[in-house]
Simulated scan of single mutants.
Amino acid sequence: MNILGNGRMLPSRLTIGLFLLIVCLTACASAVPPANPAPTVPYTPKPSPTSTATPTALPTLPPPTAVPSPSTPTPTPCAVPGRMEIGSYPSVTAGQMNYRIYLPPCYGLDGRTYPTLYLLGGNNHTDAIWDDLGVDEVAETGILAKQWPPLLIVLPDGGWIANNSSGGPGSYESVIMNDLIPYIEQTYCAWGDPSGRAIGGLSRGGYWALEIAFRFPDLFASAGGHSAALLDQYAWPAVNPQYTGLSQNLGDLRIYFDIGADDYVINNIRQLHLDMETAVPPIPHTWVLNEGRHEEAYWQTHIPDYLAWYSEPWPLDRTKYPTCFQ
């Protein structure tokens, strides 16, 4: 130790070194972090504010329209189509005779009988004429549409006897009344009652339909003459429709005449119409004067009219028909 002359002692080098060491330790201690530092929270920058657009209002939609359920189709009489059959029957008067018959859809399946329409052809025709004109197709369409009831349509061949006789016993009348109708009603489910029978014909067949029905009005519901050729010069008053239509008590027989204005056979049937109209009392009948001539195109055009008229008194409800015992 050095002692100054004024009595103070100068610090030695050792003392100065210790002093510096103490100062250094104190400063370093303040710079050391604590043993368990608090956890550091990472910095997450805030997103920049985004401008919020005001949504555009959607148009107001009308309420949904209810979709209708598919309509149930009108049931047809059945899935089995009608058909035309060709056959023959024995005739005491004329030998074996041919015929055709239209059987409606589901024929025979419900166990009931059917009203029956007999349609006769002209003197140059066979049993094919009404078939060729399409009567079965027209009938099928109307039956499926429920315009008229299922019915049988019988198309007989007139043959030589229809062209060479005028009426009465032993004529084509006997073939129809004694042979054909009994055969049809025994062989098929035909409604064997006068209310279930109708007869009609075109040209010469119209003559025969009226000849038969006017002589046996209580055995038929309806009779039609379509362009009826009342031209038989050999027909006597007891069989000629121009006379029997006026002299016979026709009762409730429904009668239909139609013809084309340009038909060459119009005179006699028009006269019968006038005579029935002016009779006292008038004889009920339907008279239809159409445009047309004596030809197949005329009859084909009016088949729907004929079937509608013949079917009018027959019920659509099949339960109203008698049971078939075939």
Rank of each mutant, 00 (worst) to 15 (best):
I184T: 02
P149D: 04
G82D: 08
W148E: 03
P105V: 00
D193N: 02
V80M: 13
I129A: 14
I129C: 15
G108P: 08
A128L: 11
I86W: 03
W191K: 03
G192D: 05
P149S: 07
Q186I: 03
I129Q: 09
I153F: 11
T141D: 11
Y99N: 05
R112H: 05
G82V: 10
S165Y: 03
A162N: 00
G111C: 05
G111D: 06
M177E: 06
Y114S: 01
C78I: 03
I161A: 07
D132A: 12
E140V: 08
P105T: 00
I161V: 09
I184R: 09
V135Q: 03
D179N: 13
L103V: 00
V92T: 14
D132H: 14
M84T: 08
A128K: 09
E140R: 08
L151N: 00
E85L: 15
W130A: 12
P194C: 13
T141L: 13
I181R: 00
G122L: 04
N163C: 06
S171Q: 08
E185C: 02
L144W: 03
N178D: 15
D157Y: 07
V92Y: 12
H125W: 07
Y99M: 15
G108Y: 04
A190P: 04
T93M: 12
L117T: 07
I86E: 15
G87S: 10
G111S: 12
C106P: 10
S166T: 15
I153K: 02
Y107E: 05
G87D: 13
S166I: 03
T116K: 00
Y107T: 04
P194I: 15
G87T: 15
L152Q: 05
P104Q: 08
W130L: 13
Q96M: 11
E85D: 15
E140Q: 14
L133K: 06
D127Q: 15
G170D: 10
A128D: 10
I143S: 05
I184H: 02
A128N: 11
P105Y: 09
N124I: 15
G142S: 11
P169A: 15
Y89E: 06
Q96I: 01
E137R: 14
G170V: 10
D193Y: 01
G134R: 12
T126L: 01
R100T: 03
P149C: 08
L120Q: 05
N163P: 01
S88N: 14
G170K: 05
P149K: 00
P81N: 13
S165G: 04
Y114H: 02
P90W: 10
C106H: 12
I184L: 08
T141S: 15
G95F: 06
R83V: 15
S88I: 04
T141F: 14
D179W: 12
C78S: 12
P90M: 10
R100M: 12
E173D: 11
T113A: 04
V80Q: 13
K146C: 11
C189T: 05
M177I: 15
D110P: 06
T141P: 08
L103C: 13
R100H: 09
P81G: 06
P182K: 04
N98M: 09
G134Y: 12
Q96C: 05
P115T: 03
L180H: 09
L119T: 05
S171G: 07
G159H: 10
L109T: 12
T113K: 02
D179A: 03
D110G: 02
P149M: 06
I176T: 11
D127N: 14
Y89K: 09
G122K: 04
G168I: 00
I101W: 02
L109R: 09
R112K: 15
G87H: 13
N123T: 00
I176G: 01
